[in-house]
Amino acid sequence: MMTTISNEKKVTNKDLMQIMWRSLPMEFGWNYERQMHLAFAYMMAPLMKKLYHGDQKEYTESLERQMEFFNCTPQLVPFIGGVVASMEEKNAEDKDFDVSSISAIKTALMGPLSGIGDSLFLGTLRVLAVGIAASLSLKGNILGPMIFLLTYNIPAYLVRYFGVKVGYNIGTSYLERIQKSGLMDKFKDAAGILGVMVIGAMTQNMVVVKVVAKFGTGKTATSLQSILDSILPGLLSLLVLYIFYVLNKKKVNVLWQLLGATIIGVLLTAWGILGV
């Protein structure tokens, strides 16, 4: 069938290893708006060039896709990179593939994997490594720092190495099955549902807007935030998200949105309405 063409555009083990190595600067270039997106795009860029070789429009679109909001425990990112690689590969082969499911799956994975990864690596492994190393270090023994690094990093790199392979294999096998059973539309819905649920939860958790203004004076003063919280905790986060959603729909330049948010944030804080 599509032998020669599709072979060129197949993801090889070498590509996966490249994703693994390129996942290393994941916390470099971090910013408040889209967090790890630059590093994620850096990680995926060579594969995009290979998969969409010869189609400039598809290629640039794929690059822009990799630049979306991303945040996850760095050690688990190669796994997501593997999954995304399998989906991009499918997208390059199949013109009917819905690209929004790539964003949806990526989003659905990053939230939960951050939860698992942070508690595993930062909560458990790091504490374990400090625990093992501290007694030596506190005696001034240089073995302490070394043991700390080895205890933390050997598992960390194993997870990166196997993660990218496992992610790619899971991605391809599921996509194969879904496509054969003609359930691609359903898959898109499923990915979308998972994606927006995770975004909903992340909005509630990560977009923080706190009102410090109070009604009344002295002892009878009631905090406005406590009233809002009794209605719906995170109501204002929802409002902020909605404002940005509308601005995006109206194609307002993101730089203006950033600048506006910064100025409004500073002003509302200076007037004593919002606070940290």
């Binding site: 708006e33 977009v207 706190k210 959603y245 601005l247 948010a261 944030g265």
Partner: peptide, 24 residues
């Protein structure tokens, strides 16, 4: 403090862009 307040709102921009792609 004001910059911190603004920074805490900024992830909403990233989420809004993502939502626009997935939402139906």
């Amino acid at each position: 403090n004001g910059l911190q307040v603004a920074a805490n709102m900024l992830p909403a921009i990233g989420f809004a862009i993502l939502l626009e792609m997935i939402m139906n």
